[in-house]
């Protein structure tokens, strides 16, 4: 599981989900844009970040609605051709949010849908990450979720390392923190 300090995990929890309040709460008016006093009333329907929705659900203070990118229309689209669906514009943390929602929803098919999606897209990502030119940003990256982008980059790095090993290239390198560009020093 993810660690307390994991940035990707933390940012996945920032994605908004739609929540229905089962209770009223005072002093948190900012959560509900249509409240006029500083309170949230029972039955208010608002978008909350996942980290808050998660805990409120566990304390039975709110219901969670599945985000629109897990609805039937998207699932049909995914069934037709997983490799072509633009996930990034829907939710950059598609899998992260999905996994966190599985225990919070009574939709039993969500987990298998996520698995189906990744399985359908994985081969394509792997092939393209191995074959794409190193310097360019291939088109396929524009529709990948954050998790898939990390997979893609891992694939690309391993391919670069393999090529270097085969060509017997340099093995020691300038530290990446210093940046790539060399300053034109010493030229008078």
């Amino acid at each position: 599981m993810s660690s307390y300090y994991d940035l990707e995990d933390l940012l996945a929890e920032e994605e908004p989900v739609s929540v229905l309040f089962r209770v009223a709460a005072d002093g948190v008016g900012i959560l509900d844009p249509s409240s006029e006093d500083n309170n949230v009333e029972q039955g208010a329907k608002v978008d909350l970040p996942l980290w808050l929705a998660q805990d409120l659900f566990q304390r039975q203070a709110a219901f969670i609605n599945l985000p629109s990118y897990f609805n039937q229309r998207v699932r049909k689209e995914m069934q037709a051709d997983p490799g072509c669906v633009d996930i990034r514009s829907r939710c950059p943390y598609f899998y992260g949010v999905g996994c966190k929602l599985v225990p919070l929803t009574n939709d039993a098919t969500l987990g298998s849908f996520l698995l189906y999606t990744l399985r359908g897209r994985y081969k394509d990502i792997l092939c393209k990450s191995h074959s794409a030119a190193v310097s360019s940003t291939p088109k396929v990256m524009q529709i990948l979720s954050r998790e898939e982008t990390i997979l893609f980059q891992a694939g690309r790095e391993s391919m670069t390392a393999f090529k270097k090993w085969r060509m017997e290239g340099t093995r020691m390198e300038r530290a990446a923190v210093l940046g790539k560009k060399r300053k034109p020093q010493g030229e008078l």
Binding site: Y4, Y5, D6, L7, A25, D26, N39, L52, D55
Partner: peptide
């Protein structure tokens, strides 16, 4: 009651902010 849930949300936000700050410093 209403105050309890208000307090709860502020508490959770506090914990969340702490996690973000810790994560920033740690990484």
């Amino acid at each position: 009651n209403r105050d309890y849930f208000g307090a709860l949300i502020h508490h959770l936000s506090l914990v969340r902010n702490k996690r973000c700050l810790m994560s920033y410093v740690y990484n």
